[in-house]
Amino acid sequence: MSAHSHVGTRPPAVVPRWTRKRQGRRTWWKTAVGLVLTAVMLFPVYWMINVSFTRDQDMRKSPPDLFPTHGTLHGYRLVLDQQLPYLGTSRAIGLGTVAVTVVLAAPAGFALAKLRPYAGGVVGFLMLAAQMIPGIIMAMGFYAIYLTLGFLQSVPGLIVADSTLAVPFAVLIFTAFMAGIPGELLQAARTDGAGTIRTFWSIVLPMSRNAIVTVSLFAFLWSWSDFVFASTLDGGGAHEPITLGIYHYIGNNNQEWNAIMATAVVASIPAALILVLAQRYVAAGVAAGAVKD
């Protein structure tokens, strides 16, 4: 159970790879268990994929087919014809939301965790309250404001709205993580003559990599799958996110479920890839950071 030697000198926000040495042949059963768990977890996702291939007349077949044996590509044909441009919009909105969230929340987290502002507790409490406001109410508030400002159907407007899903959460997370950064480090920086901004930029931020990644991940996922704000604020706009593509298949009397599900599948594939790649990068990045110290 030897750990990397750097751990003791690191702030706690470092990954302990305490089992790495044991990795190898003895862990194959863990992989097996992991695969089974993942399969169970993702079964509903599989079911969605199954439905996306199902012909209309088999949708409610009893008992249902486990595989789309009489599959149809009808849904995908529609989606690929109509939806691909929306993926770019979704990505832009997701990245924009991540940027807005981190830029707003990281300094606030730092202030709340380390700078002890007056009324900081009140701000933290408001942060909690803010998250309780139902999404619909938020969307309606934005609608009224944007209508007056002429901001409807714009991508930046949607980014700002989507960021409200993540900012209070991000502040709480940053606060909790940054509080774990040892005070001596900050004091040492101050002794060296670094101002608050410099301390934040060169010490606190780099050490909060984990928190930044977590926050970015959530912000991206939330905005990617957001439907409420998109439909309220961006419906009918020139640049719509992929989730709104679902509207094309909701007729006023009928829903084309294979196309709806196909839209969701197409929308989630790129994001899932990003997710898997990001996780690898993150793991590597954190390890590299650890060694550097």
């Binding site: 619909i136 009224a144 439907f227 409420v228 439909s231 909701i250 006023n252 009397n253």
Partner: peptide, 17 residues
């Protein structure tokens, strides 16, 4: 018919504004 869907679409209305 589509109300179930719609719902999640969220809607909005009322309340606030």
């Amino acid at each position: 018919t589509r109300r179930r869907i719609a719902l999640s679409l969220a809607v909005v209305v009322a309340a606030s504004t």
